[in-house]
């Protein structure tokens, strides 16, 4: 559960501290309330933990982190976790 998952921001919500991110082809909204206001923009990379952005990272770091998750055999779990974030998805 201490997995930190790298994702790339696709879109920033206007009213709430939410960002739409892409993690290995899965897109979900995550909360960016733990980052400074205006700290991230579309195209930026972030580290995600339990539905929240923990920190902004650069693209190289994002790829390093992905490689590490892969090496630890946790990349599948990471995608599963992101897929499980339902809190800001339209209800089915």
């Amino acid at each position: 559960m201490c997995l930190a998952i790298p994702g790339q921001i696709v879109e920033i919500a206007e009213k709430e501290p939410l960002a739409r991110v892409n993690v290995g082809g899965v897109t979900r909204n995550v909360n960016v309330g733990l980052l400074d206001d205006g700290a991230v923009a579309p195209g930026d990379w972030i580290l995600i933990h339990v539905g929240f952005a923990l920190s902004k990272i650069d693209e190289g770091q994002a790829h390093d982190q992905l490689r590490m998750l892969r090496a630890m055999g946790e990349d599948g779990l990471a995608i599963e976790e992101v897929r499980g974030y339902r809190f800001a998805e339209p209800s089915q």
């Binding site: 930190a4 933990h49 809190f87």
Partner: peptide, 29 residues
Amino acid sequence: VYSPLDALRIAASNPEKHVCFFAIGFETT
């Protein structure tokens, strides 16, 4: 749940129930 916010969402959509989140973790979480 994968996020405490998902627990909150379950609460919002089940107003007749009480939803408790079992929070664990260090300063990361």
